[in-house]
Design a protein around this nucleic acid. Sequence first.
DNA 1: CACCAGGCAAGTA
DNA 2: TACTTGCATGGT
Length: 216
Amino acid sequence: MNRRATLMSYFQAMHLALGDSGWWPAKTPFAVMLGAVLTQNTSWKGVAKAMANLEAEDLLDPAALRDLPVARLEELIRPAGYFRLKAKRLGNLLDYLDQACAFDLAALKARDMAELRQELLGVSGIGPETADSILLYALGQPSFVIDAYTRRILSRHGLVPADEPYEDLRDFFMDALDHDPALFNEFHALLVRVGHHFCKPGKPLCAICPLDSFPH
DNA sequence: CACCAGGCAAGTA
DNA sequence: TACTTGCATGGT
């Protein structure tokens, strides 16, 4: 079985078991970018609280956030953890968005993906996973997102080495699959959901994991 | 109590 | 280039 067929069979198994994930479909692109930074090495629960704090003050908007004192931003995002660090990183992102498109985020959707990805990676605080999350979930561009669960699940199934570098893992998906944003979106979401529920660090895969019937 | 969560950058050798 | 460490709150 070729890699495309293998990956699609994983996708089908996960989707059949868990259904649609509905990740980041309804919010604005900017809100998605905020979430992508705030969720770095952090569970979504605290991020949701931080986002609610911002929304309650109508701050899910780049210009509004730019005018907010840093100390106030730190206070509002505190539940997401690393609050001083993340306040800086959001400031860096705002500086970039102002310079790159004058906060016209819709304009970024038309940009060349590879070029835009390189620019995002140039922002301090935006690494490969955050950049790909922004491209895919905020801008609808077909950039596959790799996270700790994706690496863990694929390596435990013997599809890649455990220490496979981020870019190689991303190529593993992108060389095999059609560059369909909807597919990339749902595929990554399902991998995270499966990892979260069934694939804890150090523990063996669980018998009710939808991927348990695959070789590992 | 220990450990982890949808990472990243800076420092060290 | 390849490790190590700091960042911080909240849940299990």
